[in-house]
């Protein structure tokens, strides 16, 4: 079977399009690449969706945490502690079984037990908590002069936040937020190993990589391929976030712009 044929059969296998049966024996390198690449669709889906939705909640959380009113501040603090203080793996398990219980109460919760929604919600809350903490740190280190200047111009409330505080917050938080995006992208591999079932073997990249490793008992081919894909996508994230970073800092003279400094990414 030619490689082109394999791409047609398995290129969208993770979405359930194409050949139903996974290859069972005589695995070719091409099959490895195509199937693991097909699984990356899910990693990208989870990563992008959680990041985009989580961004808004994170901003809200950071602002709530800065609030002088305890009724707003305390819930935000607890939310961040809850999601940053416990392993994502356990959160996935807990959420899955919670949704299972809710499902037996009301059919409305049916889709929540599937990974595409249930796991996405956990990732959304999780990344919101981590980025919320980053944004909170940035909000606290906004130069006093910026806010005073805004006051002097007669800005207050929403315009002040929208025009002065928020952009400065993003500018300060951006390097750390880039790391968070990479973390989150890597954390998406946990989804199908933590309760959420890969229905009809529609799994993510790691799911297929471990499928190959189990079948061939040879970890030296599938996992390096997985690593290759992830390094590629990590570089893409760094590239995109670097562009946003230079856009955020476009008012500064070139040599003063803060370069993105990346720290190693860790498990949650």
């Amino acid at each position: 079977m030619s490689c082109w044929q394999t791409i047609q059969d398995y290129g969208l296998r993770s979405l359930g399009i194409g050949e139903r049966l996974l290859p069972r024996s005589d695995f070719t390198l091409c099959e490895h690449f195509v199937l693991i690449g097909s699984g990356m669709i899910w990693n990208v889906y989870f990563g992008i969706m959680a990041l985009v939705t989580g961004f808004f909640l994170a901003t809200a959380l950071a602002v709530a945490r800065m609030s002088p009113r305890a009724a707003l501040r305390k819930p935000a603090e607890w939310f961040i502690f809850l999601f940053r203080g416990s392993p994502l793996f356990i959160q996935f398990f807990f959420a899955y079984f919670l949704f299972l219980n809710l499902k037996s109460v009301h059919p409305f919760f049916d889709p929540f037990t599937a990974a595409w929604l249930g796991a996405l919600i956990v990732l959304f809350f999780n990344t919101a908590a981590y980025s919320g903490e980053i944004f909170y740190g940035a909000l606290r280190s906004i130069p006093k002069g910026d806010v005073e200047a805004a006051d002097a111009y007669g800005m207050s409330g929403w315009p002040r936040f929208r025009r002065i505080i928020w952009p400065t917050m993003l500018r300060l938080a951006w390097p750390a937020y880039t790391n968070e995006a990479i973390f989150l992208f890597h954390a998406t591999t946990l989804v199908f190993f933590s309760g959420f079932p890969a229905w009809q073997q529609k799994g993510d990249a790691l799911y297929y990589a471990s499928y190959f490793a189990d079948k061939t008992f040879n970890p030296f081919i599938p996992y390096p391929i997985l690593a290759f894909y992830f390094i590629l996508f990590t570089l893409a994230i760094i590239g995109v976030f670097g562009l946003v970073n230079s856009r955020l800092n476009r008012h500064l003279p070139k040599e003063q712009r803060r370069r993105l400094r990346l720290r190693p990414n860790l498990i949650r």
Partner: peptide
């Protein structure tokens, strides 16, 4: 140091156990 960056750690766990 560098090899562990850029790759999800869970992949390392699954890899090293067999390797």
């Amino acid at each position: 140091i560098a090899v562990v960056r850029g790759v999800p750690d869970i992949a390392f766990f699954l890899f090293f156990v067999i390797a």
